[in-house]
Each structure stands twice: as C-alpha cells, then as structure tokens.
Design a protein around this nucleic acid. Structure first.
Lengths: 185, 185
DNA sequence: TTGCGGTTTTTGTGATCACAAACGAAGCAT
DNA sequence: ATGCTTCGTTTGTGATCACAAAAACCGCAA
C-alpha cells in the first residue's frame, strides 16, 4: 500500500537473504523512483500527490504514443494476435475483480506492443513511470470495482490492423490518460 | 571515457571508503543507465551505439520542450537574467576549449530553466537521459573543438522574453537535436 | 485524555571477511 | 606467429558485526 514502510532486515528475512542484497534491491528501486527514501534512510512506498500523478500521466502521454508509433511499421499479424490474447486476459481479470492481475495484464499489453518499437531506452523510461505509479494504481484499482474492460484497447488493435498511425497515437494517449483520470483523488 | 571499466575496490580507495558505499553508488548509477553492468557483474561506462544516441536525442526532444513550455509562464526577469549569465559562462568555456566545463554549463543552463517548470519527475527523467549520454558527450565534445557558443540559446532567451511558447518549444528542440547531431559517428 | 522525558528497541551504515567466478598472463603445442 | 590450456590474481557477492541515530514505547504529570 502507498506509504507502507519497509525494513532491510524484514525484506532479507522474507527472501532468505542477508541485509546486503536487500539493501541493493531497495536502493535500486529508490533510484528508479519506485520507493521513497526518507531523509533518515528509512524506505517506504511512495504516496503520490495529485500533481505528481498528473505529471506521470503527462509523461506516459508523451512516451507511449511515440513507442506505439515506432512499433506500428513492425506490427505484423502474429503480434496483433498476441495482443488480442492478452486483451482477453485483461477482460478476465476485470470480470473476477482481480486488481493486481488487471494491472499486470494491462501493462503486459502495452509492453508487448512497445517491445516492437526497438527503442530500449524509451521503453525503460516508460517502465520506470509505471513502477512509480505501482502502489497507487494497486490501491485505487482495488478500491473501485470496474465491470468493463478498457475500451481503448480495441481502438488500439483496430488502428494497428489498419496501419493508421495518427489513430494509433490518439488511441494510446486516450487509453493512458483515461486510466489515469480514475486516479485523481 | 566510454568503455572504461570501474572496480568497486578502486572506487573505494579513490574516495577513502570501503567497498560497500562504492557498490551502492555504482549500482544506483547502473539503475539510472549511467553505467553499464556486464553479465558477469563488471561495471564500465557505456559505449553508445548510434541508434541509442538517436533514441536518447528523441527523448530529449520530447521532454525538454515540454519542460520549457511549463516553465514559460513562471519565467520572470530574474530567471532570464540568470540564464544570460550562465550562457556567458558557456561561451567562456567554448573559448577556452574546456569540454567538461562546456557540458556542465550547458546542462546548467537547461536545468535552471526547467527547474521553474515545477515538474520534478519530468526533470529527473531528463537528467537521467543526460547522465546516460555523459561519457559519450565528454569524449566527442573534447575531440571536436568548436569556436562558437551554441546559437540556439539566444533564441531560447528571446522566446522567453517574448512569451512565445511555440517559438520556445522550437528553439529548445533545435538546441537539443543540433547538439546531438554532432555525436552521430 | 494529552503532552512530555527517558529508556529500550529497531534500523540503516560502513567495514571486513570468505568464497567462487571471471579475468589475464604465461607457457606450451601446432 | 597463433591458438589453447593452465594457473595465479583480481573482482563481485553475500554474510556478519559494531556503532550511531532514529523511532517506538512506557510511565508520569498536568
């Protein structure tokens, strides 16, 4: 949960290692912005302000349409088929109210598409943004129980099939910003 | 230099600490993409391929105009004056062929502007991109000896003074992509 | 009940060590 | 000369420890 605090010894015990590897993992996640490091060295999951959430949404809205656009020329039928399979899994997660599974599958959908962009640095930055929103997304998607799968995924898929680059950019941007609109407290 | 290898014990000795803090610092820089971690755990500065350089340039071209645009409404005279001072320092570095000082001052110019954007996550991603290009920039700017200060800084300053948002975006994008065009080997 | 000292426990930090894997150099064979 | 093997050295990893700072706890007083 956002704001939950972590201890090196606790993590170490949880994974049956000493403090040293736990420390490394934690500090890496801090460097990526996925965990918050207090001035006294204590570590906790971040509680994002509304401004921060909107900033991260703006980053996604810049990065992800570009990744999708770069993936478009390389998106052959096998990829689109795989995306449709993942999208069905997303719908299943919505149906069974599995918030964590929903987030996982939703990001899997996006990552599978973006991998085709052959832009590793861009993809890594995008995943860093996702990581920063992780605890917040989990808390809020768990709270509200949706009935419908994300509507823009179908738009993304049809734009991919049609080779419609502006439409794809729009669909991705809409998917990203619509999902994040729910997080505004 | 790009490709130079680093050892934990070496860094520790250099800064009069043990391996432990050296390891943490190195792993953080690896997480940020500033250092390269081989599969065997060895660490070195990265050697960027041309594709990677263009990708990082594309990231700068997306992020930095947005940051400048967000800073524009808050850019008062004191800030512009400070930017002009920094820009003079940039020119001095060019004049005395100080590649490191030039890179430092050039980024200082950009960071000073972007700080006004009140967008810490965006600024951090941008600085991460800078960090990834660090060794490569240093190697290449040291090699070629320029005579002229960066021409687009003046354009940025006049767009700031005029409150010209599209012009500012264009000037920033041009400054970023022009600087990076020199790095294409 | 609430606020405040003082004590105890928890927690991160940095150092050191043993160990295994990877590297590099030297020697040998072709 | 070149490629391969071998052996000594370097290097990262994870564990453990001492220490200091911070947090949590407890009891007491207003």
């Amino acid at each position: 949960m956002p704001g939950a605090s972590l201890t090196l010894r606790g993590i170490g015990k949880q994974f049956d290692v000493s403090m040293t590897p736990a420390r490394e993992a934690v500090r890496r996640l801090v460097a990526e912005g996925a965990l918050f490091l207090s001035s006294s060295g204590r570590v906790s999951t971040p509680e994002l302000s509304n401004e921060r959430i909107e900033e991260l949404a703006a980053l996604r809205a810049m990065l992800e349409p570009e990744l999708a656009s770069r993936a478009l020329p390389r998106a052959h039928f096998a990829l689109i088929e795989r995306l449709e399979t993942i999208n069905q899994a997303v719908s299943q997660m919505v149906a069974r109210h599995d918030a964590i599974g929903y987030i996982r599958m939703n990001l899997e959908f996006h990552r599978t598409l973006y991998l085709r962009a052959q832009a590793p640095a861009m993809l890594m930055m995008t995943e860093t943004v996702w990581l920063q929103m992780g605890p917040t997304m989990r808390a809020l998607y768990g709270r509200l129980n949706r009935k419908e799968p994300p509507p823009h995924h179908r738009l993304i898929l049809s734009a991919l099939k049609a080779g419609d680059e502006p439409g794809l950019r729009l669909a991705v941007r809409a998917d990203v910003t619509q999902g994040l609109r729910l997080l505004r407290g």
